[in-house]
Amino acid sequence: MDLLQRVENALDTIRPYLEADGGNVSVEEITSDNIVRLRLLGSCGSCPMSIMTLKAGIEQAIKRSVPEIEAVEAVNLTDIDDPEAVVPERLK
């Protein structure tokens, strides 16, 4: 099983919880240095708690199932041009 499929399988274990709150996640890429870049979808893309969800939930689930993954990043948490992005300036 390839790396992407293993990451997707790990995400499938937590997707029901994300979907219950109107959200989801998609894999944008896995870099050559084993960093998973995700896009938070639906309510996850605009939720103030998404940074915690990413680190405490999503990243831990992936690393537990796919130990060679070094880190997990959300592309839309740092994309200031995205009006749905969760960035510190908008967490008021």
Results as ranks from 00 to 15, higher is better:
residue 55 K to Y: 12
residue 31 T to R: 04
residue 57 G to H: 09
residue 14 I to Y: 04
residue 12 D to Y: 06
residue 21 D to S: 01
residue 62 I to G: 00
residue 16 P to M: 11
residue 37 R to T: 06
residue 8 E to S: 03
residue 90 R to L: 07
residue 79 D to K: 03
residue 87 V to K: 02
residue 63 K to A: 00
residue 33 D to E: 12
residue 12 D to H: 07
residue 32 S to C: 01
residue 21 D to F: 05
residue 48 P to Y: 13
residue 36 V to D: 06
residue 61 A to W: 04
residue 53 T to V: 13
residue 57 G to Y: 01
residue 74 A to M: 06
residue 5 Q to S: 15
residue 82 D to K: 02
residue 26 S to E: 15
residue 53 T to Q: 11
residue 88 P to H: 01
residue 5 Q to A: 15
residue 82 D to E: 10
residue 63 K to E: 03
residue 3 L to T: 10
residue 21 D to W: 11
residue 73 E to P: 07
residue 69 I to E: 04
residue 18 L to S: 02
residue 22 G to Y: 06
residue 5 Q to T: 15
residue 74 A to H: 03
residue 88 P to A: 08
residue 12 D to E: 15
residue 91 L to W: 05
residue 17 Y to S: 14
residue 16 P to F: 04
residue 46 S to M: 14
residue 13 T to M: 11
residue 31 T to F: 02
residue 5 Q to D: 14
residue 22 G to A: 04
residue 76 N to V: 09
residue 58 I to R: 08
residue 64 R to A: 13
residue 48 P to H: 03
residue 44 C to E: 09
residue 64 R to P: 00
residue 57 G to W: 10
residue 34 N to D: 12
residue 3 L to D: 11
residue 78 T to D: 14
residue 31 T to I: 01
residue 37 R to H: 13
residue 28 E to V: 12
residue 1 M to R: 13
residue 54 L to I: 09
residue 2 D to F: 08
residue 91 L to D: 11
residue 46 S to F: 14
residue 81 D to H: 12
residue 91 L to N: 11
residue 60 Q to V: 09
residue 56 A to G: 08
residue 51 I to E: 05
residue 73 E to G: 02
residue 42 G to N: 07
residue 24 N to H: 04
residue 57 G to I: 09
residue 2 D to T: 15
residue 88 P to E: 12
residue 86 V to D: 02
residue 82 D to I: 01
residue 51 I to P: 07
residue 40 L to I: 02
residue 30 I to M: 07
residue 24 N to C: 01
residue 71 A to N: 13
residue 2 D to W: 12
residue 62 I to F: 03
residue 32 S to R: 14
residue 19 E to V: 08
residue 73 E to H: 06
residue 63 K to P: 00
residue 13 T to Q: 12
residue 31 T to E: 09
residue 21 D to H: 10
residue 91 L to F: 03
residue 92 K to H: 07
residue 39 R to V: 13
residue 64 R to S: 14
residue 23 G to S: 11
residue 56 A to N: 14
residue 29 E to M: 13
residue 16 P to C: 10
residue 41 L to Q: 04
residue 45 G to H: 10
residue 59 E to F: 09
residue 74 A to E: 00
residue 62 I to R: 02
residue 24 N to D: 14
residue 31 T to K: 06
residue 56 A to S: 15
residue 16 P to Y: 00
residue 34 N to E: 08
residue 67 P to H: 11
residue 22 G to V: 08
residue 83 P to E: 05
residue 61 A to L: 04
residue 65 S to R: 10
residue 50 S to H: 00
residue 35 I to A: 07
residue 89 E to G: 03
residue 26 S to Y: 12
residue 68 E to A: 08
residue 58 I to V: 12
residue 60 Q to R: 13
residue 2 D to S: 15
residue 50 S to W: 10
residue 65 S to Q: 15
residue 64 R to N: 14
residue 68 E to N: 08
residue 90 R to M: 01
residue 17 Y to G: 10
residue 3 L to H: 05
residue 53 T to S: 14
residue 77 L to C: 10
residue 75 V to N: 02
residue 88 P to Q: 05
residue 15 R to D: 07
residue 50 S to G: 04
residue 46 S to I: 15
residue 68 E to T: 05
residue 47 C to N: 01
residue 42 G to W: 08
residue 37 R to C: 11
